[in-house]
Design a protein around this nucleic acid. Structure first.
Lengths: 110, 110
DNA sequence: AATATTTATCGTAATATTGCAATATAAAAA
DNA sequence: TTTTTATATTGCAATATTACGATAAATATT
């Protein structure tokens, strides 16, 4: 196996899982943090910042892009990446939802 | 390969990635949602709720537990699972951090 | 004690992920 | 036009993940 049985779950569950999965690697977390740390979007220097080879970084960027977490646009012979707020807000809404529920019911065991 | 180079990233980045990764499967999202939907923690009926075989569910529960997202305690011959708020608050803090940054700088390109 | 119930573990097959060298592509600079 | 610069793609090896049948372990029930 190795493949998730996505068709047995709701669209929403699959969507949330896909976004979370894309963030489930330290290099990709580092990319997001770097994108945040610079003032605008970045055109070029991600590879020099990460401790990974260029093809590997390119692959991680691709996955973040596929998950909709970042957007990239061509800027001369470089590519300009920035965070896609809409996608991350989906995850944030999920966590707000969780926290609301947890605070209301004040878990009565465990 | 197939193994992440975790030693090249910060503890925080690895921690965030590990939690996100644990949420990166629809079955595990479904488990969290089910844990939220019932009033207290659940002792037993997770397997019947998910469209997966019992060993598979057990494995997913183990991963959520390893990531610190849920806690389990023995309750007779069943096991009582519930959400660990502390761990999820780490992710929520990350997203708040991101959103604060994004709102401040109001991305000037892309 | 014998049986049922609940959850975990083992073993294994199918597939996915990670990482990089080599190479391709495409625009910029010389 | 040739060369440089920046990024993507391909191919491949090592490892991880997903799923489940078979089985184990541990408590409850009869």
């Amino acid at each position: 196996m190795g493949a998730s049985k996505t068709d047995h779950f709701t669209e929403k569950q699959n969507q949330l899982a896909a976004i979370a999965k894309a963030l489930g690697h330290p290099a990709r977390v580092a990319i997001i943090e770097y994108l945040l740390s610079v003032d605008s979007c970045i055109c070029g220097d991600i590879v020099n910042v990460l401790p990974l080879a260029q093809p590997t970084v390119s692959q991680h960027l691709k996955e973040l892009k596929n998950a909709g977490i970042i957007k990239g646009s061509i800027e001369g012979n470089a590519i300009c990446y920035c965070i896609n707020e809409e996608t991350l807000s989906i995850l944030q809404a999920f966590f707000s939802h969780i926290n609301n529920h947890l605070q209301i019911k004040k878990s009565n065991c465990c």
